[in-house]
């Protein structure tokens, strides 16, 4: 193990290390802690210049109450959910299939199709912006949740295919050969042999895609506008306009907007990290 395990060091070093951990964490999360403090302050503290002192009153419920009951935030959160969940499902279906095709079968263009997905996944959004916006307009899907979902599904299929294909490659191939020898149809191999084995990968991918899509801002402002369709990342700017210079409410709003993926992460931590680090080890 590297670096040297701390247990093998002297008691002094051990204590110092344990003391340093919370300090380091505090520094690391400082910008975030700052807005958490802001979000429970009363507005009066900002006009009186009491930015960093003890809050003159504890306004947690009042501030967050405003966010939830007196703004469009709940609607934006709902939109985010309506965009994110179908995207995740769509990506899982498409990429399970493409990953299966590219991971199991050997045919001449296999690698090229795979590379197309990988390369496409890396392109800058801006090169797609004008044509995708046009396409969405032509289909009458501009400013609809469906329009945004379709694009996200298509684009994320690139990443998901990479992910799935590499995972399927690592599955024991003899399993599939055994099934073929039994005369099992290929689509049944997919459904009953490979798919169950893909469960952990699908879970990991779902959590990742959820986070990616939830946090998308660029496509939200390119393809949607207004409170009926925009997800929370885009809605937060309208929210902030409503409460400009009311830092306690903007802080509370930001925290609310950031929370769902954070919760997702803490609940599904194992899958999340497994997904992110796939390929980091060989």
């Amino acid at each position: 193990m590297f670096p040297k395990p701390i247990e093998k060091s002297s008691a002094g070093v051990r204590t110092a290390y344990k003391a340093m951990l919370p300090v380091a964490l505090l520094i690391w999360l400082m910008p975030l802690l700052a807005i958490m403090v802001f979000s429970v302050k009363p507005g009066a503290d900002f006009t009186t210049g009491n930015y960093w002192g003890i809050p003159s009153s504890f306004n947690l419920f009042e501030n967050y109450g405003k966010v939830f009951f007196e703004s469009d935030m709940p609607r934006y959160l709902l939109n985010s959910l309506l965009i994110t969940v179908p995207t995740v499902i769509g990506c899982m279906i498409l990429s399970a299939m493409t990953g299966f095709a590219l991971g199991i079968y050997r045919f001449r263009s296999n690698l090229w199709i795979f590379f197309m997905f990988v390369a496409g996944n890396f392109v800058p959004f801006q090169i797609l912006m004008v044509p995708v916006r046009d396409l969405t307009l032509d289909m009458g899907l501009y400013n609809t949740i469906a329009g945004l979902v379709l694009f996200h599904v298509a684009f994320q299929t690139g990443f998901c295919t990479l992910f799935m294909r590499n995972f399927i490659r690592a599955l024991p191939f003899p399993l599939i050969e055994a099934a073929r020898v039994e005369g099992v149809a290929e689509w049944r191999i997919f459904l009953y042999v490979v798919l169950p084995l893909m469960k952990p990968a699908l879970a990991a991918m779902a959590v990742l895609i959820f986070t990616f899509i939830w946090n998308d801002f660029f496509w939200a402002i390119v393809l949607t506008q207004g409170v009926e369709t925009q997800p929370v990342t885009a809605g937060i700017t309208s929210f902030n306009a409503q409460y400009r210079a009311a830092y306690h409410l903007m802080s509370a709003g930001s925290i609310v907007a950031a929370l769902p993926p954070v919760l997702m992460f803490f609940l599904m931590q194992k899958h999340f990290i497994a997904g992110l680090t796939l390929g980091a080890v060989k």
Binding site: R133, Y142, N143, Q225, T237, S238, N240, A241
Partner: peptide, 20 residues
């Protein structure tokens, strides 16, 4: 009625007028 942030509207209007 859809109310957009006044500064954001300046960058959105064109998009809105032509697309929706």
């Amino acid at each position: 009625l859809t109310v957009t942030d006044r500064e954001a509207w300046k960058t959105q209007i064109r998009n809105v007028l032509s697309a929706n």
